[in-house]
Simulated assay, not measured.
Amino acid sequence: MLLLGASLGAAAVVRARRHRPDGNDGNRWLVVTVNREPADVYEGGSPPRPLDRFGDDLEVRVRPAPGDRGTELSARLRRPVPPGATSFPARLAGRDPRQGVRTALREAKALLETDEVMLPDHPPTATGGTPAGKLVGLLSRRSGGEGVL
Rank of each mutant, 00 (worst) to 15 (best):
D22S: 00
G128T: 09
D40A: 15
A75S: 11
D25A: 14
L8T: 05
L138D: 06
E107D: 15
L111I: 03
L8C: 12
L2E: 14
G100D: 14
M1N: 09
R78W: 07
R17G: 09
G128K: 05
P21Q: 02
A126W: 10
T127K: 03
G137R: 08
P89F: 06
P50Y: 02
G84W: 13
K134T: 04
P21G: 06
R106C: 11
P48W: 02
V13Q: 13
R61S: 15
E113Y: 04
G129T: 08
G145W: 06
W29R: 11
D68F: 09
D96W: 02
L149N: 12
P38Q: 03
R91K: 03
A65S: 14
P80I: 00
A126K: 07
A75Q: 07
K109R: 15
R20M: 10
Y42I: 08
R79P: 00
P124M: 12
R98A: 07
S143V: 00
Q99Y: 00
L105A: 01
R95Q: 13
L149Y: 12
G44E: 05
A104P: 08
E37D: 15
P80W: 00
L3Y: 05
D52E: 14
N27K: 04
A65P: 01
A110P: 08
A10E: 09
G100Y: 00
E43C: 05
G45F: 00
G128I: 04
A93K: 12
L92A: 15
T103S: 14
P50A: 06
D40Q: 15
Q99I: 03
A10I: 01
R79T: 13
T86N: 01
D40L: 13
E37R: 14
V101N: 02
A6N: 01
D56N: 12
H122G: 00
N35D: 15
R49V: 11
G144S: 11
G144R: 13
G45Y: 01
T125F: 12
A85E: 03
A104V: 07
P48A: 05
R61F: 11
G45Q: 13
L139S: 06
W29Q: 12
S7P: 08
P124N: 11
P48E: 05
A93H: 03
G100N: 06
V117T: 10
L51Y: 05
R91P: 03
T125C: 07
F88I: 12
L105Q: 04
A75P: 09
A93G: 10
L30C: 08
A39N: 09
G55S: 00
R49N: 08
P66R: 14
E37M: 10
V136W: 02
R102Q: 13
V34I: 09
E146Q: 11
N35S: 15
P38L: 02
M118H: 14
P131M: 02
L149S: 12
Y42M: 13
V148H: 14
R95P: 02
P64F: 04
F54G: 01
G128Q: 02
A104M: 04
S140P: 04
L135V: 08
E43I: 04
R79M: 10
G100I: 05
V60I: 11
S87I: 05
A108D: 02
Q99C: 01
R20C: 05
T130D: 14
D25C: 05
P83K: 11
A104L: 01
T127F: 03
A6T: 09
P124H: 12
N27H: 10
H122Q: 14
G144D: 12
T130I: 02
G67I: 09
D115F: 07
G144Q: 13
P124Y: 09
